[in-house]
Write a protein that binds this DNA or RNA. Structure first.
Lengths: 161, 161
DNA sequence: TTATTTAGGTCAGTCATATTGACTTAATTA
DNA sequence: TAATTAAGTCAATATGACTGACCTAAATAA
């Protein structure tokens, strides 16, 4: 980078500063999932189980198709995880009005696990919010939202209608 | 939640709003790694290879021990990935002054791949910065930093001295 | 100088996440 | 009736990561 370019590039836009953001994303995401992962590990579950439980809890009576649309994994990948959760009675399956579809919902056991896992992340965010300025939180949310592709934005907005 | 509690809890602190943040983190992180992952996939590499290449590029002549300290994975996990990168000449290994240690650095081939992978993420952040207010970016960075545990903060600060 | 610690490596086994590809069944819809 | 859709399944493969047990060589502490 030439001295002229350095002069023209605002400090907050320099590659060095951008690389710091990349690292912050790496470190913070790892930290964010660490707590739930430890609990999941004890019952021989993983990140995928949390995701399924989370979105089934969010969207009661969600179909397999819609869940796949959120998670963006293959049917075969979901199958393994979901079958475990159903077999171990965290999730209950019923037939939809369209009899080709299935509706998923959390059992009390599932609700308990969901609450336990999400509480760690919710508490973490709560404590950050308490220590931060509201404008910083709003900046954080805005940037996160702008990082998402259009299709996922639609899904995000749909599940938060 | 009682009506009184609702009154006392600022809107931006409600569980519903916090769950939105959890989802934003999930969607945005997935989107953020998608581009590099597609390139890595073509050469039969994965996320782990990007991380190793990234931090070796960041910290020239880093030792195995320090790399493990950043990645927080086991020696055995790093071994598989690193051996591939060395065998395929993305990374060069030399002996440190302390002859028990090894120093890692990127070859030209490694530098090229690192640049190609990171460019996608850097460009993404650049474009977000261009469209966002500086205060929002600063809020984003502050919140990310506050999400990290103390040990990782120390590592982050050390590699950015 | 010997004993201990440290840095790095390795072998073996296991588990979790996810993929591609090929099929099947049953219900809905054109 | 034909085509599409939702869901499921079998098989093989790759990646990422773990535990546990060992080993070597170099540096450092007793």
């Amino acid at each position: 980078m030439t001295d002229l370019n350095k002069l023209l590039t605002p400090l907050f836009l320099s590659e060095k500063e951008i690389r710091k953001i990349i690292e912050l994303i790496f470190f913070s995401y790892r930290e964010f999932t660490l707590g739930p992962d430890e609990i999941l590990n004890k019952i021989n579950y993983g990140r995928a189980h949390h995701r399924v439980i989370y979105f089934v809890g969010k969207q009661n009576n969600i179909t397999i198709k819609d869940l796949l649309g959120i998670l963006k994994i293959t049917k075969q990948s979901l199958s393994r995880v979901l079958n475990q959760l159903v077999k171990e009675k965290y999730i209950l399956v019923s037939i939809g009005e369209d009899k080709r579809t299935k509706k998923l919902c959390l059992t009390q056991k599932g609700l308990d696990l969901e609450a336990k896992l999400s509480k760690i992340q919710i508490d973490k965010i709560k404590s950050i919010i308490n220590d931060a300025k509201e404008s910083d939180i709003n900046g954080f949310k805005k940037i996160l939202y702008s990082m998402i592709d259009e299709k996922s934005k639609k899904i995000f907005n749909k599940i938060n209608e």
